[in-house]
Design a protein around this nucleic acid. Structure first.
Length: 651
DNA sequence: AAAATAAGCCAC
DNA sequence: AAACGTGGCTTATTTT
């Protein structure tokens, strides 16, 4: 973990820079004293660490982590230059880190190449140097674009908020002033009076006074207006049955829970610019829908008495969902990406890349560039704001089904390996292998597994599998994603809202021609139990300390982690090697291309537009053969790469 | 007023 | 009973 980029300094300058790093679960803090705060000066400082109890039961206590070398970056913040350490310092760092690393679940005893130090020398030191370069390079952000997007988002939020509050205030007058962003208030509104699921006997009050910001300026002479005032929020409906609960036993008011109340309504009214059409559009929606069409309305329909009121409730709740999702995009992405805190003068944005995960993946923070909205979720096309500098282009290259390929390799699963060898749409192929009737349809050429448009052909001669058997393919796809994470039948049953038995059957179908996966997973669990660790492709291990003294719940978590860690960790190994390979490529360097970001199975580079195509081919080559120019896996590594002016266009 | 927690949402 | 792995971050609310 702590090799490349450990700490971040916050700008709290009282008495010194305070350093902070890592995750919420194991945060590390320390201070750089005043006398070492000169710009550009190297300094040494002890950093103190704190650990918390983790999910698998390993417990932390307050420990001194390490003395590390700290540099000041010219324009931003303190960071550790570990890549510039000389060999003696490296050795010292290694010696002192070794025990800490092992405590933090990292060992390399199973590493085919030898000790932790070998691994460090061969992979982590060059990898760390790459991360440092990437952080320094940063990504260019188009702030003007974001500011336009912000206006649109704020306007759409207002439309939805007005709609919802107008509706809610019919049932509870003060709802006009409520904070729709407060889950407490929303919960009170819909579930007031309900019993806690975990603590029977504990009830949510029917009505409750809650604080809201006091924007109604009741200016009294000589007194400043109080910051908050209280409003009374009462339950507006009886007998709404919650389907999802939070950890503490109260009904969840997450987007998913609310959407299930509202039902599958088309709320495309917010994608049009005509806010005035609001009422009209929803009315037309209602008139088109059959009154008793229970499939398009959610559980709120009946709870609010059906009919007009029921419909209005569903549309209002749908609007509430809109508000929440818009708010989330604004406050998590649109605003911070424009902020000064994380951007430099040139408009390039620099995150921290850390090797601090259990599996060896990277994490990114300040800001986290690895969780920018993608695909349908990216309704404001936020990724379009990540652009190449003038004259430059971005290359975005990602692996196709990396983790599934890793799983196929690790488990040596014939069926999966064959499917990958055959190429084409893996999920369709999974669906075919799962369902007899699909297989027959394919064999009798009633549907096409996949289709390469030939010149002269406009559409396939027979339907594609993914269209003809969409539901089955979707199931197969979800299973493909879930299996490697160790999902159980119970979890599937809940997600799909089917019986446990049904989920079991579907799971059996998935495993029916993938027996090797099942036995591989069993082996991993045994390994975890017998050796207290499991291994990745390159021999890194994830440890499960004090495995003997864990509860059954913790043991279940360890089992799933034991299945997941080799897959996720090996994928991380592949991604790391690919990046080292890219960095090592001299041609790419001559052409002026540099790595900017990694998002687990995806890398982003920037360089001159004129050499984009050449560079793209090189990147694909590096990623396909990431181990010193070869691919040691028994499965091909598919890479999809695109060049474009921005991140959105390249996906 | 600051720190901690709960809940939620984003990514792969 | 039984919640899918790995992360970061924001807001509202409660605790100190």
């Amino acid at each position: 973990m702590h090799l490349a980029r450990l700490w971040d300094s916050s700008r709290r300058l009282d008495g010194g820079y305070s350093l902070e790093g890592l995750t919420n679960d194991s945060r590390v803090m320390g201070v750089v004293p005043k006398e070492l705060q000169k710009i550009g000066k190297r300094s040494m400082k002890t950093i103190f660490g704190r650990k918390k109890i983790k999910k698998d039961g390993s417990e932390g206590k307050i420990t001194t982590i390490e003395s590390v070398e700290v540099l000041q970056r010219e324009d931003r913040e303190l960071w550790i230059s570990y890549s510039s350490l000389d060999s003696m310092s490296t050795l010292r760092l290694y010696e002192s880190l070794k025990s800490k690393l092992e405590k933090k679940h990292w060992t390399f005893d199973g590493c085919p190449r030898g000790s932790l130090y070998d691994f460090y020398e061969e992979y982590w030191r060059p990898f760390g140097a790459i991360l440092v370069k990437m952080e320094t390079a940063g990504m260019l952000v188009d702030r003007a674009y974001l500011s336009e997007v912000e206006k649109v988002a704020v306007a759409q939020r207002k439309v939805a908020a007005d709609k919802f509050q107008k509706w809610a205030s019919k049932y509870c007058p003060d709802a006009k002033y409520m904070n729709v962003n407060s889950d407490t208030q929303i919960r009170q509104l819909f579930f007031g009076g309900i019993e806690n699921r975990r603590n029977p006997g504990e009830f949510l009050p029917k009505s409750r006074a809650l604080k809201v910001p006091n924007d109604v300026n009741t200016v009294t002479e000589g007194k400043k207006a109080p910051k908050y005032r209280t409003i009374e929020i009462c339950s507006i409906v009886e007998g709404l049955k919650p389907e999802v609960f939070t950890a503490s036993g109260w009904p969840s008011v997450s987007g998913d829970a609310l959407r299930s109340l509202a039902g599958k309504l088309k709320t495309d009214l917010y994608t049009t610019e005509d806010a005035e059409d609001d009422e009209y559009v929803s009315d037309s929606e209602i008139s088109v829908d059959d009154v008793e069409d229970a499939t398009s309305y959610g559980t709120a329909y009946k709870a609010f008495g059906g009919g007009k009121e029921g419909k209005e409730a569903c549309y209002a709740i749908a609007a509430l969902c809109e508000i929440c999702s818009i708010d989330s995009l604004i406050s998590n992405f649109i605003l911070p990406l424009q902020g000064n805190r994380i951007s430099c003068k040139e408009g390039r944005i620099h995150c921290s890349l850390n090797i601090n995960t259990e599996t060896g993946r990277l994490s990114a923070r300040a800001p986290n560039l690895q969780n920018q909205p993608a695909l349908e979720k990216d309704r404001y096309k936020i990724r379009q704001a990540f652009v190449a500098a003038p004259g430059n282009s971005l290359i975005v290259a990602d692996y196709g089904q990396l983790e599934l390929r890793i799983l196929a390799h690790l488990a040596n699963c014939r069926s999966m390996l064959d499917a990958f060898k055959a190429g084409g749409d893996f999920h369709s192929r999974t669906a075919m292998n799962m369902y007899q009737h699909i297989r027959e349809a394919v064999e009798e050429k009633r549907v096409l597994l996949e289709w390469d448009p030939q010149p002269g052909q406009e559409k396939p001669p027979v339907p594609l599998l993914k269209d003809a058997f969409g539901a089955e393919r979707r199931k197969a796809k979800m299973l493909n994603f879930s299996i490697a994470y160790g999902k159980t039948a119970a979890g599937l049953a809940r997600d799909w809202k089917v019986s446990k038995r049904e989920a079991d059957d579907t799971l059996d179908l998935w495993y029916s021609d993938r027996k090797e996966v099942k036995s591989w997973q069993r082996e991993q669990k045994e390994l975890a139990y017998e050796k207290s660790e499991v291994y990745t492709l390159l021999g890194r291990s994830r440890r499960f300390p004090n495995i003997a003294s864990v509860s059954s719940k913790q043991w279940k978590h360890i089992e799933r982690a034991a299945i997941n860690a080799p897959v996720q960790g090996s994928a991380a190994d592949v991604a790391m090697c690919a990046m080292i390979e890219i960095e090592r490529n001299t041609r790419l360097k001559e052409l002026g291309w540099t790595l900017l970001l990694q998002v687990h199975d995806e890398v982003i580079l920037e360089g001159p537009s004129e050499s984009a195509d050449v560079a793209k081919a090189i990147v694909v080559e590096c990623m396909s053969k990431p181990f010193y120019g070869t691919n040691i896996l028994s499965v091909d590594l598919a890479v999809d790469a695109k060049c474009a002016q921005n991140w959105y266009a390249a996906k």
